[in-house]
Design a protein around this nucleic acid. Structure first.
Lengths: 322, 322
DNA sequence: GGTGCGCAATGAATCGATTCATTCCCCTAG
DNA sequence: CTAGGGGAATGAATCGATTCATTGCGCACC
């Protein structure tokens, strides 16, 4: 009924007594408006999707927090999903989002080819890249300057006197990982050190267990680097534990620098020096960009790429050696 | 059109050539079926909601993982939300779920009075309690035996010779917290120790920062307990750090036992002894119970309460003292 | 007293998938 | 040759909120 709709959406257009009568009926019947019906009419839902690489990583939990806050301020719900770095999963979720007619998608792409997103863009559902620079001007994106982050982390170690730094990396197809290495190399170059001063310890995952493995390999290196820079804090925590278990003292024998500055980095027994990413801000800004794009009726929207700056947080794990 | 619907939902009822023609058209137009419309007709959506206390706690991330896996196996999406232990937020989200006509809700109640859920139950949307025993037989629930968990943790400490144990608790209105204390007390009683042997260090949150605070207070206690049992691992990690910073050796001076056995417990420099909760299994079972209840047409569904057993995982933080 | 204006409420159309009754065709059997 | 039956496609009704055109009512002004 039209009047009921008015009572809910434009109360001022209804006589107070009618309004009261309708509200009473609503209360009595326990009526709850159906979102499906509204959605059908409106053509899109009031839900924003967030697709991240790994919900087990507190970094992404923070991104989710920021996005959720911004979305709820705008009266939207958030659906948080996990691609687990699998392009297949990612494609599946994107399909789900299209069917749901979500009002927009925040996504940290797992598929480096960009094929999934290209396919998705046909649905005319706005999306914003998170923690990834836009390839063209056709997309909004919020990212952190990973090259600078890598430079910050390794620059800090180099200026503390380290001449050989291990880099515990992650899946090579992730942009973030490559950029951080690039920054690390540039920091070495700035200090007049050769690229060989960066000893890469490859890893195919970005979790604590992978960090433990990497730590074990680090211990086997001859000569052994005096410092290690990790592509994220989960790896760093794993490395820290492996070193501790082997009786290697941090930072006395080996200094450690992580990346992300998750809560657990500061909470480690030897608090981790880490390159802080403004995760919550990133989630919030991404959501805001998305809302802007989604609310845009007249095609006036201009895609924007926001690049945030990382920040070095020095803690005990990298105190000056020797 | 009816035929299109048949092509998608009952392909065998359509002639192969017609089917091919329809599929070709679908492909050409980039057609994606609208979930809103299906939902409107079906009366409920194909999304399951999960409302947890704190997404910053890896324990709940694991629960979410388990639930998501089970839900996706059944072709459903999962919407993970965060009440932040606030009954108000909880009520808001439950309202949102009702509007969305989600097919069911998995919830770790933040509102101890049960008023929110009572109100929600009017909507006839099935829900399953997670990490909480059912109050009556009117609800499905999956929980872990927290009394037993408390007894395991403190029993372990007592049998290692500790005579005075601190209990870092959490918000007093949470069932889990009270049950774990009860178990702790029973373990003391079993060892012939008086209730006063358990020194409670109250805390109003369950995160690492609260653990640091608690650790500081623990250090000020006279006489100082020789062991501490924490209501969850985040608190334990905070306590561990506070002790480490103060130069108190773990486990030599003070032993620590946590609860949940999150990944970071094992990853700590001094790996934490912890009472493991089968979080992933809990999420999976809760989702399965919910699916069972939601699929039940004839009202044949019998509400069930599943109680899982915790398990003590002994690590370095509680090695025998003295 | 009659006409006109304006505010409020009513009713119908719409969104898109589903479902079921109906129609349509073709083939077979009487 | 026709009637009947079965398999396949069509079309209309449905879900519930929204929106807009229409109706209806009351009051004021001529």
């Amino acid at each position: 009924m039209g009047t009921v709709s008015n009572v809910i959406n434009r109360p001022e257009a209804v006589l107070p007594q009618t309004r009261a009568r309708v509200l009473a009926a609503i209360e009595e019947l326990g009526y709850v408006r159906s979102e499906s019906a509204r959605q059908l009419r409106a053509g899109r839902s009031r839900i924003m999707a967030l697709l991240v690489l790994d919900m087990g990583n507190p970094f992404f939990v923070d991104v989710a927090r920021g996005a959720e806050r911004a979305a709820r301020a705008a009266g939207l719900g958030v659906m948080v999903c996990n691609s687990g770095q699998s392009p297949t999963e990612e494609a599946e979720y994107l399909g789900l989002f299209a069917e749901q007619r979500v009002c927009g998608v925040l996504v940290t792409p797992a598929d480096a080819t960009g094929r999934n997103l290209e396919a998705f863009s046909r649905h005319r559902i706005p999306f914003v890249l998170v923690d990834r620079v836009a390839s063209g001007t056709g997309t909004c994106a919020v990212s952190v300057d990973d090259v600078r982050g890598g430079a910050l982390g390794v620059g800090h170690l180099v200026s503390a006197g380290h001449r050989s730094v291990a880099y515990v990396s992650g899946p090579g197809d992730l942009h973030q990982i490559r950029d951080r290495r690039e920054g690390a190399l540039s920091a070495l170059a700035d200090a007049g050190l050769p690229p060989e001063a960066l000893v890469e310890i490859p890893s195919d995952r970005l979790d604590v267990a992978a960090g433990r493995d990497a730590g074990a390999r680090l211990l086997g290196l001859v000569p052994r680097p005096t410092a290690v820079f990790c592509a994220n804090d989960l790896l760093a925590l794993g490395v820290l534990q492996a070193l501790y278990a082997a009786g290697v003292r941090v930072p006395h024998d080996i200094a450690i620098v992580g990346y992300d500055d998750i809560e657990f980095a500061a909470a480690a027994a030897v608090p981790l020096t880490s390159v802080r990413q403004p995760a919550v801000v990133m989630g919030r800004m991404a959501a805001e960009l998305l809302l802007e794009e989604a609310d845009d009726e007249g095609g006036t929207h201009e895609h924007r790429s926001v690049v945030l700056q990382p920040e070095l947080v020095v803690r005990a794990s990298s105190a000056t050696p020797r």
